[in-house]
Design a protein around this nucleic acid. Structure first.
Length: 270
DNA sequence: ACAGTAACCTGTTTGC
DNA sequence: TGCAAACAGGTTACTG
């Protein structure tokens, strides 16, 4: 499940292969992603040069000298750099073709997206109203504390709300709350400033560590070269129902919160 | 404004 | 053994 670390890992992986290169063509085998891929994608992108690859939240922005390709990996997407003419297999929906390589989007569940943006991507509806980047300067415990005032929602749902903070999905929300010692059901508005300072620090720490490990591979995620990420081995609570807490030994609990599986240590988190 | 939930989708796991 | 139901989850859209 690509969350921020997986998307950033992908960004870093594809960047050296693509920046400065001219797109020779595009092949769309199945346009039915979250939103339809533009029917004239090949005509639009042909001849454009990639000038940089950025990430905003979980979106990848392939900036060209005449517009931007926005890619989201959804839940099951990955991008690979392959030799030109590599035969496509099932769920290989799109190729961007370059002279010496091919960028291929593979996405079994088709929750991902590939869109063309004319002009400034910042003003695109999908990127408007997004909260701060957790690894950027502006993200602090004081910011979270201020946004949480009066909110009755569970802290875990609050953390996963992209308008509050981007990039934190189910896995890293669970892990951040464990590290901060906060119970996922706690009402957001009831947590004090000190709690939010711990939480902000935990979020940054978890994400940075996961990026170092190349992200978390549970089932789908692979990097641009086909290797998995290794952060799954470092998970403290996610998917560990019934196993003993690596800090105190008590069994990890699982509950549902906002339609999502939620894991915590009843001893370490309150 | 906020909170909760259904929907999108398919591969895998679980239950009968 | 086989088939159906449940589950996984990022994000949007809708409801109250």
């Amino acid at each position: 499940m690509p969350e921020l670390p997986e998307v950033e890992t992908t960004r870093r992986g594809i960047e050296p292969h693509l920046v400065g290169r001219v797109i020779e063509g595009a092949i769309v085998r199945d346009a039915r992603l979250r939103w339809p891929i533009p029917g004239d994608l090949a005509e639009i992108v042909r001849g454009k040069r990639i000038v940089g690859i950025e990430r905003r939240a979980k979106y990848l922005l392939l900036r060209t000298d005449g517009g931007t390709i926005l890619i989201h990996l959804g839940m099951s997407g990955n991008l690979r750099i392959l030799p030109p003419q590599t035969p496509a297999s099932k769920h290989d929906h799109v190729d961007l073709c370059f002279t010496d390589c091919c960028l291929r989007l593979h996405d079994p569940r088709r929750f991902g997206a590939l869109l063309w943006i004319e002009g400034d991507p910042q003003t695109h509806p999908l990127l408007q109203g997004l909260g701060p980047e957790p690894l950027a300067e502006g993200f602090t415990g004081d910011y979270l504390y201020q946004r949480a005032q009066g909110r009755r929602t569970a802290i875990k749902s609050f953390l996963m709300d992209g308008r509050i903070l981007v990039g934190v999905g189910n896995i890293y929300a669970n892990e951040s709350l464990f590290l901060a010692g906060i119970h996922p059901s706690r009402v957001a508005g009831s947590i004090d400033r000190e709690g939010y300072r711990r939480l902000a620090k935990s979020v940054r720490q978890i994400l940075a560590h996961a990026i170092e490990q190349g992200g978390t591979t549970l089932r789908d995620f692979i990097r641009e070269d086909g290797r998995p990420g290794y952060f799954a081995q470092r998970l403290n609570v996610y998917g560990r129902t019934g196993a003993s807490c690596q800090r105190c030994g008590v069994a990890i609990h699982e509950i549902r919160l906002g339609q999502r599986s939620t894991f915590f240590c009843p001893q370490c988190q309150s």
